[in-house]
């Protein structure tokens, strides 16, 4: 019995709301449950490594990746190869230049971001001649309607790879982010540590996640979800474990709610926008609670 059949039976028996009779809802929810924890987990490292602006830039670079993919003949709704190729090149070249110049990192990211967006904007003119530009909105801001079983397979594969890497190299990545020189000399996580390789690996992982999350959250908003849940959890956590768990909870909760709420309330907004709006609201609420002095109880 397929998953869809199982859900249809559950709907018929009245155990699930009617909305689950549509396959795209199931697919979107599965995607949300996979992508939420993944973005949360990487988000904790993004915050410690201070790579928030970088991950935003990689997401925005996706605009150009999408345009390149369509111009090279990839399907407009799924330009995965070009998206990954561009995001990866963007991230690697940026990181390589960073290690070879004295330019402050935020300034460097700003230059690369501006270049990527300008290039994307220039290419969109040609893309508009080939496809309806509105199709791009789905790729840039996410749409639950377009998630397919093939997307879920891709997302599942990338999730497994990412979790294995986090499990194996999490401590090393964390300690290298905190004190790179110490990790170079003394190692981290009880092992010898190649800080440069870890840095490049992490950057690649962010590019990979951007591609994985493109259908549900949208390329442009992935960076936001790498940043907001971890930044929020950081405000209310007193140790690493609670920081990690709370980030995952906020991230997953926002992803699921961002898929379900617009449907339930019949608000026609992209899923990515809904997810990020929810995450931002949680952040603002936590800031407000802290201002009101309720933070001690939360932490």
């Amino acid at each position: 019995m397929s998953l869809q059949q199982l859900l249809a039976d559950a709907v018929a028996a009245g155990w699930l709301p009617e909305v689950f009779q549509y396959p795209f809802v199931t697919y979107a929810l599965i995607a949300a449950v996979m992508v939420g924890p993944l973005l949360g987990a990487l988000g904790t490292l993004v915050v410690v490594k201070r790579l928030a602006f970088f991950s935003e830039a990689v997401g925005h670079g996706a605009l150009t990746g999408v345009a390149v993919g369509i111009l090279l003949g990839e399907p407009a709704t799924q330009p995965v190869a070009a998206l990954f190729g561009f995001c990866m090149s963007f991230a690697l070249i940026l990181h390589w230049v960073k290690s070879r110049t004295q330019v402050p990192y935020d300034a460097l990211v700003g230059v690369f971001l501006a270049f990527a967006i300008a290039l994307g904007a220039a290419l969109l003119l040609y893309v508009a001649k080939k496809v309806n530009v509105h199709i791009l909105e789905n790729v840039l801001f996410g749409s639950i309607l377009t998630v397919t079983p093939a997307d879920l397979m891709l997302l599942g594969g990338i999730s497994v790879i990412s979790w294995v890497l986090i499990w194996r190299y999490g401590n090393q990545a964390l300690m290298s982010a905190l004190q790179p020189d110490l990790a170079r000399v003394q190692g981290a996580g009880g092992r010898k540590t190649n800080v440069t390789l870890l840095d490049y690996g992490f950057v690649l992982l962010i590019a990979l996640i951007t591609v994985a999350a493109v259908k549900i959250i949208g390329a442009v908003l992935v960076g936001a979800l790498l940043l907001i849940p971890a930044t929020t959890a950081r405000l209310i956590s007193s140790n690493l474990r609670s920081f990690f768990i709370r980030t995952l909870m906020i991230s997953t909760g926002c992803c699921v709610a961002g898929v379900v709420l617009p449907m339930a309330l019949e608000i026609p907004i992209p899923s990515g926008a809904a997810i990020v709006l929810l995450a931002s609201s949680v952040f603002l609420l936590v800031v407000l609670f802290r201002q009101l002095g309720w933070s001690q109880r939360l932490a």
């Binding site: 986090i166 499990w167 194996r168 999490g170 401590n171 964390l174 300690m175 905190l178 003394q186 981290a188 996580g189 009880g190 092992r191 140790n239 690493l240 474990r241 990690f244 768990i245």
Partner: peptide
């Protein structure tokens, strides 16, 4: 405690 454990042992920091 987090800092030292993540430095000296391989068990990932959230366990």
């Amino acid at each position: 405690e987090d800092y030292l454990l993540a430095s000296i042992q391989p068990k990932v920091f959230f366990r």
